[in-house]
């Protein structure tokens, strides 16, 4: 997994509540058996006017000029700003895959759905939760200033821009380290192999029916 520590990028304002995973990556793209290549289809139904299909060349598709990511000033954004309950809906990891593949490194929202939040950390995306007052302010600044960027310092948990007082954000230590170190989580768990086997043995004696061979 890629590491992420410091990031500075253009902010794109997606002013909606409950941005769900069906909107982030519609179901026809879940047919992919690969992790990569989904960035072209991120927010497909909002971004394009036609119906997208997996494998389609998106350069020729009619574009919805109103959609935020199609506006020139936000085209190269890598920080997404949104409202509450971002990423609600299904568990599809295709959502963070598509966001990451498009180029988003950081998502700032009032709140996130649990599974989506979890999935971000497995894919080098930093989700940041901030209060609605701060988010309102960020939306205003983003609209009022062309090329508005934010600088994110994960180690010190700060967000900065000359137009702002430094914002502190919360993040759990283990999640922070996972991003900073780019850890192989499976490898980390396998360090406990002996404990897992010990647990399994005891568990099997107590609940033999859980160990039927299917």
């Amino acid at each position: 997994m890629k590491k992420i520590k410091l990031w500075e990028g253009i902010v794109a304002p997606l002013d909606r509540q409950n941005v769900d995973t069906d909107a982030i990556i519609p179901k026809q793209f879940l047919k992919s058996i690969y992790r990569t290549g989904l960035g072209n289809y991120l927010f497909d139904e909002w971004r394009y006017l036609d119906y997208g299909e997996l494998g389609q060349d998106c350069r020729k598709r009619p574009i919805n000029k109103e959609f935020i990511l199609n506006k020139n000033r936000f085209k190269n954004s890598s920080i997404l700003l949104s409202r509450s309950n971002f990423g609600c809906g299904s568990s599809r990891e295709h959502a963070p895959w598509a966001l990451e593949n498009f180029g988003f490194k950081v998502i700032i929202a009032e709140s996130f759905a649990d599974i989506f939040y979890n999935n971000c950390f497995k894919n080098s995306i930093l989700p940041i939760t901030l209060s609605s007052v701060i988010i309102d302010n960020l939306f205003n600044l983003t609209w009022d200033n062309w090329g508005f960027t934010l600088k994110i310092d994960l180690k010190n948990q700060t967000i900065t821009n000359p137009l702002l007082k430094t914002i502190q954000f919360d993040i759990e230590e283990f999640r922070k380290m996972a991003l900073i170190k780019g850890l192989d989580e499976i490898g980390q768990t396998l360090i406990y192999s002996e404990e897992i086997k010990k647990f399994e043995k005891k568990h099997k004696i107590e609940n033999p029916w859980l160990f039927n061979i299917l």
């Binding site: 992790r35 497995k122 499976i186």
Partner: peptide, 20 residues
């Protein structure tokens, strides 16, 4: 509970998950 694909892989390989 539902999990993402990275966690599916984690469970296949370790029969465990790291959770809060």
């Amino acid at each position: 509970f539902g999990i993402g694909t990275s966690e599916v892989e984690h469970v296949l390989a370790t029969q465990c998950l790291i959770q809060k």
